[in-house]
């Protein structure tokens, strides 16, 4: 794809990236502070959060927190 094409998509791609990164960082920050998970679990969740796009952080925030 030519460069001008990419420029045309920037106004829509940048907010999308910001949302995804916000979600990922929120989940990671929560994971680091989470004391209910042991080290191995944390590593697995970190991989899921980082590499499973969009669904990964959501899965962690719904099922992985073990808070209540």
């Amino acid at each position: 794809m030519a460069l001008p094409d990419i420029m045309a998509y920037l106004p829509i791609i940048i907010p999308l990236l910001i949302l995804q990164v916000t979600l990922m960082i929120t989940a990671l920050l929560h994971l680091v502070k989470n004391e209910r998970l042991d080290r191995n679990n944390k590593i697995v969740w970190a991989l899921v959060i980082i590499f499973v796009n969009l669904i990964g952080p959501i899965l962690y925030l719904i099922f992985g927190r073990k808070e209540d």
Binding site: Y9, I12, I58, L61, I62
Partner: peptide, 21 residues
């Protein structure tokens, strides 16, 4: 506090952006 509203916000905002894209 348990991030549910946050998840909704992100998911629905992404749907809104992703569809025209």
């Amino acid at each position: 506090r348990n991030y549910k509203l946050f998840i909704f916000f992100i998911v629905f905002a992404i749907i809104g952006i992703l569809s025209p894209l």
